[in-house]
Design a protein around this nucleic acid. Sequence first.
DNA 1: GACCTGCTGCGGAATG
Length: 741
Amino acid sequence: MNEVLHTFSRLAPFIQEYIYHHNWSELRPVQIAACKVIFDTDAHLLVAAGTASGKTEAAFLPILTLLYENPPQTIGALYIGPIKALINDQFARLNDLLKEADIPVCHWHGDVSQSRKKQLLKNPKGILQITPESLESLLINKNNELMRLFGDLRFVIIDEVHAFMGSERGCQILCQLSRLQSLTQTQPRRIGLSATLGDYLMAEEWLGSGSDKLVITPEIEEVKRQIKLALEHFYVDGDGELRETNLRDAEEAEGRGERDGGGYEEYVFNLSKRRKCLIFANNKRQTESIIASLREIAVSEGLADIYHVHHGSISASLRQSAENAMREVDKPAVTAATLTLEVGVDIGHLERVIQLESPPSVASFLQRLGRSGRRGAAADMRFVCAEEKVSVEASLEEQIPWQLLQCIAIIQLYLEERWIEPIKPIKYPLSLLYHQTMSILAAGGEVSPAALAKQVLSLPSFSAIALEDFRLLLRYLIDINHIQLTEENKLIIGLAGEKVVRKFQFYAVFPDNEEYVVKHATTEIGSIFMPPPIGNQFALAGNAWEVLEVDFRKKIVLVKQVEGKASNFWRGGSGNIHTRILQRMRQVLQEDVEYSYLQKNALKRLLKVRELARNSGLDKQNILLLENNKCCIFPWMGTVAYRTLERLLNSCCRESLEIKSIGGVNPYFLTIKLGKDKFKYLYNEIVSLCEQRITAEDLLADAEAPEIQKYDRFIPHSILRKAFASDYLDMEELKQQVKKW
DNA sequence: GACCTGCTGCGGAATG
């Protein structure tokens, strides 16, 4: 009997019927592979297969079969998803599949009615689809009923594992599974799903942590899909008063030739006209402005308004109507979105995806590409890079089309090597350490300090935390009254702790998006995510500011204005660009290749910048003297190593090189103003610093302890410093990269 | 100025 038939016959009758009635012509390779692992082994399963390859069904078909054959006494399978919309989607799909079966499905998140939840609590059977936050609330508030709910749990499915790995939210899931395991004394099998994993070994390690079962990642034959890519480049006008000068300079530069300013919006308009099309941008402002422009053009041409915006600050109902418009068959609709439409939620198959500027990562590129292409048709993705035209006298680093280079680098890394960024695990998730400590206390009532330490430190996410440091944390939490020591020497939640734990915001481990308000005396300048340490500078609203005072409770930063151009404060954690992307960008400048997807203007722009690179020495040197003792470092390294370099210069050579200012808004370059004649020492200084035994922790100022995650403010500073040095800086990588200079 | 995700239990009003 052939393999497909064999697998088919192994499935529960109601599933066979479902497949038959839905005219599935065959089981997909990923589904057969998943069935083999689930039916024939006792291992965990990592399903790493392309978008739209049928991963969720691959997990559920064999699991439902096993639950059907041997019904569990409690909830039998737990599905954990990153967003509510995805859970709703999966809930509808699973209900459809289970119409003829006697396995109940329950979805549980903030928008699900109390009555539904009560129903499950009364009769805990079948499948539960839930968010990490709602699961946390069950662990705390239904602590006494967990055995009744999960005592016979067999499977845990984690969807979009790449969205969890490398974040505290992912660590939280691992802690929750561990807590359930030690309570029920069972080891449910785990199934992880993802389309964009760069390193299977790392993902396997993540999925299996805290359990001793093997993780199997079946090799799955890639579904061959044709990909159509095109990349075009435009010059656009800068805004404000400089516009006219810019244009005049630009025209002179082009030798009074054709002016290629403008045309950018029209180009995007024509790409999306009368189509079902998604436009990805890298920030909210850009989604707003492109849709406003497209709508304007449509109106002037008497065409229908089919335009929507979708991002985190758009209300749920408007987002919903955008999603609905995209789902409607055979009706054109255009939605501009940020990351919000990147994960999982099924919005139907699109004719085309447009990306403004470069995607932030290869993983993101693939996720977005996967949105395009009806069954069988080629995926179609158009990149549009718009660059503000600058004067020819502008500084060298301002004349580089960084987005264009990054875009090419990301496409090439995928086409040439199928490379995707690996996701590094967090070594010291301290904010989560606080969270889980409080959660365990809130759930279980009083425990002895030793028992609490044992319980918390045995959780897989905290394997790097030293017992000594945990003691320090407990003592500190007792000091600030988050934890209280009873007369019987037991620990309970303290008065200040109650206030944190009893807030319903406690269940999420990521911070609410409240930003710090920046105030100059009584004038409000704007807001930033995290204030830099006192005495440091940052840019906002076109000016440079120095931090005078930070009120962490009221979230206010008091500043004074300073001269010059400061760097924008670097938000910790997220948004790291990998070193390989920067390296490949440099190669794009150096190599003599005309990539086939480059359109006319993009190719022209690339050839021009390659010439500039040759003439300026940028293609060979990492440090260039520009003018007036201003020099520019092109490190060609990722965000973490770049941040480390910036700190190294800041803390070790400010005096020796008479550094007046250091500025960089991105990992592409770093501009420095040096003392007179100091340029010739810069390179040697960096190299010699890299040869010394400087650790990442040496690069923190004396009183500095960056509070980045939600509960970092309750962590003793000495541990916080260690964590920042380990998870946000990388001296080793910096050394390695500098050796290549 | 990247970006994104999530949330309980209760009281009271409105409805069938």
